[in-house]
């Protein structure tokens, strides 16, 4: 093998960098924006897990002696119309955001991946039918479909997760199917079938692991969308209910009503949402760049 070819393969067609030791540092140094996103995500996760320690106040405790208090020494980000500490509610709110985000993107992407791979594997009328069904679901904007699901199932944490999961399924299914179509023609799939493997075994053991790259990219990209969607649903009064600490909910109602008197009530939760969505988006983009060999070709 000529030296230049070997170098090309070494540099460009190596295994995805995230799966190598020390890859996190490589990732941050080679993609600083994605690295910044990753750091914010890690901080968010830490804030969510350790909210009990970091939060200066109980996020649900009303304090009518401190209603609409401006940011200051006692309340770094101020208080809301019930005298609740905004910082504490943002920290606890990251739990809601991440829980809804992780659950819905995990369920949506996983179910979508399974449908996509199955469609690619079986092909024929089943594939045709499923693709038209996915087309119908895709024709609805994300928020509209989520609103329909919440309107039918009602509000509440798990219904919100369901509402966000359903619109994500067809999006994941389409992307994964296109990757899996090529896999279906691979010799190792033919070999597995020839050896008598069941359909489920071929799909689960041979095809699904080989679509992990697009799966992971979508998982991170959908996380940002899911957080935004949860905030949107809560803002519209269809997500989680007061007094739960949730970013979208903090933007709703009193924050709008008292926007002039206490702008911090809307400002800081809004910043938290923007930062989280930004972090997941740039991290997802960088992850796609890192995992997609085609994007690394000169």
């Amino acid at each position: 093998m000529p030296g230049s070819t070997r170098a090309f393969i070494t540099n460009n067609l190596r295994a995805p960098i995230l799966f190598r030791p020390g890859s996190a540092l490589d990732f941050i140094s080679s993609r600083p924006l994605g690295g910044a996103g990753a750091i914010i995500i890690v901080l968010m996760i830490a804030a969510a897990l350790l909210a009990n320690f970091f939060a200066p106040y109980d996020p649900l405790a009303n304090n009518y002696g401190a209603m609409f208090e401006a940011p200051g020494v006692h309340h770094w980000l101020g208080t809301d119309s019930f005298g609740r500490d905004v910082l504490s509610r943002i920290l606890y709110g990251s739990r809601t955001a991440l829980w809804v985000g992780f659950c819905s993107s995990l369920f949506g992407t996983s179910i979508g991946a399974l449908i996509g791979v199955s469609c690619a594997y079986f092909g024929g009328k089943a594939d045709l039918f499923m693709q038209r069904l996915m087309d119908i679901l895709l024709s609805f904007p994300l928020i509209v479909l989520a609103l329909v699901v919440v309107a039918v199932s009602g509000s509440g944490l798990w219904n919100v997760i369901l509402a966000i999961t359903i619109p994500m399924i067809p999006r994941a299914a389409l992307v994964v199917r296109s990757s899996a179509l090529a896999l279906r023609q691979m010799l190792f799939v033919e070999a597995a079938l020839t050896l008598g493997s069941s359909h489920w075994r071929v799909i689960s053991r041979h095809m699904l692991p080989n679509v992990m790259a697009p799966y992971l990219i979508m998982l991170t990209a959908f996380l940002g969308q899911a957080i935004l969607l949860e905030a949107s649903l809560s803002f519209l009064g269809l997500g989680v209910a007061e007094p739960t600490a949730a970013w979208g909910l903090m933007l709703r109602g009193a924050a709008v009503e008292f926007a002039e008197r206490a702008p911090w009530m809307a400002l800081f939760p809004g910043l938290a949402i923007s930062l989280a969505v930004f972090a997941f988006n740039v991290f997802g983009d960088s992850l796609r760049d890192a995992l997609d060999p085609k994007l690394r070709l000169p």
């Binding site: 019930f82 509000s155 007061e242 739960t244």
Partner: peptide, 19 residues
């Protein structure tokens, strides 16, 4: 609803508010 949940928490009750 928010007020009542807070008041009942003060006597050790855990109330879920469902609008």
């Amino acid at each position: 609803g928010v007020y009542l949940v807070d008041q009942w928490r003060k006597i050790g009750l855990n109330v879920t508010h469902t609008p």
